[in-house]
Write a protein that binds this DNA or RNA. Structure first.
Lengths: 260, 260
DNA sequence: AGACTAGGTGAATCGAATT
DNA sequence: GAATTCGATTCACCTAGTC
């Protein structure tokens, strides 16, 4: 039976926990992982609190008339204030778990970006910047306004750590153009190519932590790029999906060429 | 002598006020313009509070060793709290001046985006979304992070107003790719092509208001696209630059084809 | 080629407040 | 009064892709 310690020790490439993120994070040792890369539930998409509370994610995000349905994901019915509070909790645990100088990448839509940036800084991280995921012109157009075409990656760092030589440091573009994949396993699943760019911020053979695994794209990307992976997912269905994906990627030959 | 009233009445195409923005805004009549499109000073780009306060914009933003120099612009030495407070003041005046249903577009960098979104909503606007200006890979790279490649356009609307028919409504892309112009008159001047896209959110022959004119790109874009323009600039040098630009564009044949 | 980019970093410097 | 902190400030140097 694999444990998180096996991954941290280098005896295993990946570990996926089935259960609540906060409980899982509290069991992990301090300063043990290199990067936290995750896509938390945004709790947005509905105008009013009651609409947010009542609607299930799979109903409120899917265009009416769409034939596609998804299994609901958890933690998506919080109001703004409790969302921030909850984020400070898990972000604080992540800060403890990541090593000094370690990196955080967390997805957000435009609506939650200010709240997430507050939570990140309140939890003790140093906010370093924002990356833009450009989904392309396939996204939904908006009359009298901007097409909902971008999602944002908040970038932060745990204070401390050794200075990194700029010459050997990874460089990411500020805007990553990557069309949304049509055959997604999770309704907010991110393209694998996108996540493969992001995991470059973790050192090779470093450990990437994702408390909200979903369909497991972050884990698949991490393993494919030669990083180790620790993940957690509370919904049994997605946990199973991610487990299969990780097993598949784990078995495959990995591509260690960062210049690709 | 032209006055703001002449522009509002349709007897003139543009008016530029030399002086403080807040004082100018307070003199404008309520519900009289169609859109506020502006690029306020961000007060960012310096590590410490005193560095922000003391350093002049032309020194803190320009690469040391660069041969280029710009005349300093005003209002770039506020700390975070007073920046928000000051924004609420001018955004509140703009809300009064714009007609119900009228639009606000305000530039921001990643660092001030949360504060600006707070100020916009505190002033009474309804936040509708965010547009991304992608400067392309010519922007400066960041070791261990995202290239500083994007700026953001906060989009808001004054509550009320008539419903707009989606069929005749303007649609903007969520990410506008537009490299920075090499021949900038102002160190933070925006490309004319970018501003021409943005003024499409104002109706044809509508009035666009810009409290922070700078080198006058918003005004030039508005006039070129058949909109009228009201502007204000406190620095005499830039006021002169913008005045010449507006006169030039005013005299030229304008391009009314929004589909271009 | 070469200069440019609404930058960031760390070392060196300088001043004021504290011990 | 001299030594020593701390903080603010300046300065040199770095990066990659575009024009």
């Amino acid at each position: 039976m694999t444990t998180p310690r096996d991954v941290l020790a280098g005896d295993a490439r990946s570990y996926l926990h089935a259960g609540d993120a906060l409980a899982f994070l509290r069991e992990l040792p301090s300063a043990s992982v290199d990067a936290v890369i995750t896509d938390p539930p945004y709790s947005s998409g509905a105008a009013t609190l009651t609409a947010r509370r009542n609607a299930s994610p799979s109903r409120k995000y899917i265009t009416s008339g769409s034939e596609r349905t998804f299994v609901d994901f958890a933690g998506d019915q919080r109001d703004q204030r409790s969302l921030v509070f909850w984020c400070v909790l898990w972000l604080g645990e992540c800060l403890r778990i990541v090593r000094p100088g370690g990196v955080l990448l967390s997805f957000s839509d435009w609506r939650q970006l200010p709240s997430f940036s507050d939570a990140i800084q309140a939890a003790g991280w140093t906010w370093k910047g924002v990356g833009v995921w450009d989904k392309g012109a396939g996204a939904r157009p908006m009359p009298n306004g901007f097409r909902a075409q971008a999602e944002y990656v908040l970038h932060a760092r745990r204070p401390g750590g050794d200075r990194i030589d700029p010459a050997s440091a990874p460089y990411l573009p500020g805007v990553i153009h990557c069309p949304v994949e049509s055959s997604k396993m999770h309704m907010s699943g991110k393209p694998l190519a996108l996540m493969q760019r992001l995991v470059e911020l973790a050192p090779r053979d470093g450990v990437v932590l994702d408390p909200f695994v979903g369909s497991g794209t972050t884990g698949a990307a991490a393993l494919a790029r030669g990083r180790r992976f620790l993940g957690c997912e509370i919904v049994p269905h997605y946990c199973e999906v991610a487990r299969e994906r990780l097993a598949l990627t784990d078995a495959k030959d990995i591509d260690l060429d960062d210049a690709a």
